[in-house]
Computed example of a mutant assay.
Amino acid sequence: MKKLFLTGLGFLFAVTLTFAQSAESQEKARKKSTELTEKLELTPDQQGTVHKAILDMYVQKEALKADQTITEDAKKERYKEGAKEKHAKIKAILTPEQKDRYEAWVKDNKDK
């Protein structure tokens, strides 16, 4: 009985952590999306696409952190690939002027 209780408690803890990470990802994505909306003067259609791309990247990052079957180097490589995909999705919907500002924003964030 004690083992069953502890197993149930462990499962509940794991589920709680999963939801907390998901909420954290959504909050981070919302903040980045808001920042980019202000910096790039995005239209409402662009805002949705940008938010989706950023959120997808954060969800992928969480999944990579949780995956214990791959090495740290492989995780870093997959994260870089995901970041490249995110940048490509965002650039695809931007105007040429917005692309220049986006690239400057990315460079500034890399320097930090």
Rank of each mutant, 00 (worst) to 15 (best):
M1P: 08
K2L: 13
K3T: 12
K3W: 08
K3G: 05
L4F: 11
F5M: 11
L6H: 06
T7M: 12
G8V: 08
G8S: 13
G8W: 04
L9P: 00
L12D: 00
F13E: 01
A14E: 00
V15S: 04
V15M: 08
T16Y: 09
L17N: 13
L17E: 07
L17Y: 06
T18K: 07
T18L: 14
F19A: 08
Q21T: 07
S22C: 02
A23K: 14
A23V: 09
E24C: 04
S25M: 03
S25H: 12
E27Q: 15
K28H: 10
A29S: 15
K31W: 03
K31Q: 14
K32Y: 10
S33F: 02
S33N: 10
S33P: 02
T34G: 04
E35T: 13
E35I: 05
T37L: 05
T37N: 14
E38D: 15
K39C: 01
L40C: 07
L40N: 09
L40H: 13
E41M: 08
L42E: 08
L42G: 06
T43C: 03
D45C: 00
Q46K: 08
Q46I: 03
Q47W: 01
Q47I: 10
G48N: 05
G48R: 09
G48L: 04
T49P: 00
T49M: 06
T49N: 06
T49R: 15
T49S: 09
V50N: 05
V50Q: 06
K52E: 14
K52I: 01
A53W: 03
A53E: 03
I54N: 01
I54C: 02
D56C: 02
M57E: 12
M57T: 10
Y58K: 12
Y58D: 10
V59T: 09
Q60F: 04
Q60G: 05
Q60L: 14
E62Q: 10
L64C: 04
K65L: 09
A66T: 06
A66N: 08
D67K: 03
D67G: 01
Q68A: 12
Q68N: 11
Q68S: 13
T71N: 03
D73P: 00
D73Y: 03
K75A: 02
K75D: 01
K75I: 05
E77W: 01
E77V: 07
R78V: 01
R78M: 13
Y79N: 08
E81R: 10
E81S: 09
G82Y: 05
G82W: 04
A83D: 11
E85C: 00
E85D: 14
A88Q: 15
A88K: 15
A88D: 15
K89D: 13
K89P: 00
I90S: 01
K91W: 01
K91I: 11
A92G: 05
A92E: 14
I93Q: 07
L94N: 05
L94A: 07
T95I: 04
P96R: 08
P96G: 07
E97R: 05
E97A: 14
E97I: 05
E97D: 15
Q98N: 10
Q98C: 07
D100I: 13
D100Q: 15
Y102T: 07
Y102P: 03
E103T: 10
A104W: 02
W105G: 04
W105K: 06
W105L: 08
W105Q: 10
W105T: 06
W105D: 13
V106S: 04
V106D: 05
K107R: 14
D108F: 03
D108N: 11
N109Y: 05
N109V: 04
K110Y: 11
K110A: 11
D111W: 07
D111T: 12
D111R: 14
K112P: 00
